[in-house]
Write a protein that binds this DNA or RNA. Structure first.
Length: 165
DNA sequence: GCGACAG
DNA sequence: ATCTTGTCGC
């Protein structure tokens, strides 16, 4: 895995942040940034939940359907579902929602809270965990999200106080 | 009724 | 997300 390309979309937000309705706020900007890519990825890793959602389709699932691409959702805390708390480093516990497993809680680092891995679109619980593990590079968050988050921060700094990430 | 609530 | 003191590891 190596960095290939990054694109940025700057625009006015047209919908407030409402838990459960993330797509309305972040959808357009995400799609536009995606459209600017010269090299389309095989899979998208997104900082939002997938099927562990009240409607069984969070932002990560939504983007996957719109772009017809596999997606994996990574969040810092559980939105929907329940799981045992993994204790040991690299330990993963299944995340259940409405009776079935829809993701994982992965203890990436020994002294930080586990990350939440949620199935997005065209991926399985198994592939979500495998792929996420392969994207770890010694930090809590998988490398694609770390880079994207840092990129957003730099862009924001460059342009002054505006928008969210 | 109260608290919690992806980013 | 944003704000923010002190602490810890590389």
């Amino acid at each position: 895995m190596e960095f290939v390309e990054r694109t940025v979309h700057i625009g006015k937000i047209s919908f407030p942040y409402i838990s459960g309705f993330f797509s309305f706020r972040e959808g357009e900007g995400t799609i536009r940034a995606y459209q600017k890519l010269n090299h389309k990825p095989d899979l998208l890793m997104i900082n939002a939940c997938g099927i562990t959602h009240p409607a069984n389709a969070g932002f990560t699932s939504h983007i996957g359907v719109v772009l017809d691409k596999p997606t994996i959702g990574i969040t810092k805390r559980i939105f929907c579902g329940r799981a045992k708390m993994p204790q040991k480093e690299k330990e993963a516990q299944p995340l259940y929602h409405e009776g079935t497993q829809k993701g994982w809680l992965l203890k990436v680092l020994p002294e930080t809270k586990p990350i939440v891995i949620t199935v997005g679109h065209l991926t399985s619980t198994r592939s979500c965990l495998d792929i996420t593990k392969k994207c770890l590079r010694g930090n809590k968050m998988p490398e694609p999200l770390r880079i994207a988050h840092r990129c957003a921060g730099e862009e924001k700094k460059k342009r002054g106080k505006r928008g969210g990430t």
